[in-house]
Design a binder for these strands. Structure first.
Lengths: 136, 136
DNA sequence: TAGTAATTTAGATTCATTCTAATGATCTAA
DNA sequence: TTAGATCATTAGAATGAATCTAAATTACTA
């Protein structure tokens, strides 16, 4: 058993998710990769490259479950495709549409000196900031 | 001919778009209120309530054209659905997923005391802030 | 180890959006 | 005006991401 698989199992245990073969493989891939932003499609392809074939439904189920449990963050930068981000800390994004790349912005890099009043009876669920950039 | 229809025609003329019956009706609906947030589906329903029946393709074609011409702003707050916003001034949004509503936050309501360094060779194109809210 | 609860899966389904190609409307130049 | 060209509209098909279904399989618990 490789080290990543052991780590993956531990993560799943902490999240109270049954360590199925598929979940271990998915988690392993997510913690192994340098790339921190994946779509369902990209993840499926990465697994397939390692001869691990997991159904589309399972990929989606698990990405959603992992993000519900707070292990992944959903990022929506462009219509039609949901990205899942393995950067676990709260953070924001640079999005370069010309290059179709996402880059992280640490949460502490942004501070507000003024923030709008939240409507009555409501509370903040999350704040998403996307800084769209382009070449000079 | 009603006043809105006259205004709508003028707007289309300025945008160099042929004033077809459908385009006039769509533009009229969009300028009836000061600021409006619609999805294609919502706009279609609003028109239908006024006994104006326009095909889905035409609704999409025109919303896209109007936003290409700078008359509408596209806002992406949730996977799968594009919103179109007639508030052209720079601003941000409250998004209430439970109620599926979008509300404006004036730009001046948000000020930064800290902001990240922009990558070399890049400049800011825009900053999108979505404050996701939910009931307490 | 048996019983149950959770998980995976292929394939169907949904939903927003775009495409296609046929028909219809508007514009332009003489 | 009017003919011809260009642009717009439309129903329905196609697309693509994501979810659902229901049956089979796997992991957990007593």
């Amino acid at each position: 058993m490789c080290i990543d698989s052991k780590k993956a199992k531990e993560i799943l245990k902490n999240l109270k998710l049954r360590p199925t073969i598929q979940r271990i493989a998915i988690t392993e891939t997510l913690i192994k990769q340098k790339e921190i932003h994946v779509t369902a499609y990209l993840l499926k392809r990465m697994l397939a490259e390692n001869k691990v074939f997991i159904s589309r439904a399972t990929i989606y189920n698990n990405l959603n479950e992992l993000s519900n449990k707070g292990f992944l963050k959903k990022v929506l930068v462009k219509k039609g495709k949901m990205w899942f981000d393995t950067n676990l800390s709260k953070h924001h994004h640079f999005y370069d549409e010309e290059e179709e790349t996402l880059a992280d912005v640490a949460e502490k890099e942004i501070k507000f000196s003024k923030f709008p009043k939240i409507p009555n009876g409501k509370r903040i669920k999350s704040v998403d900031i996307v800084i769209n950039i382009k070449k000079i």
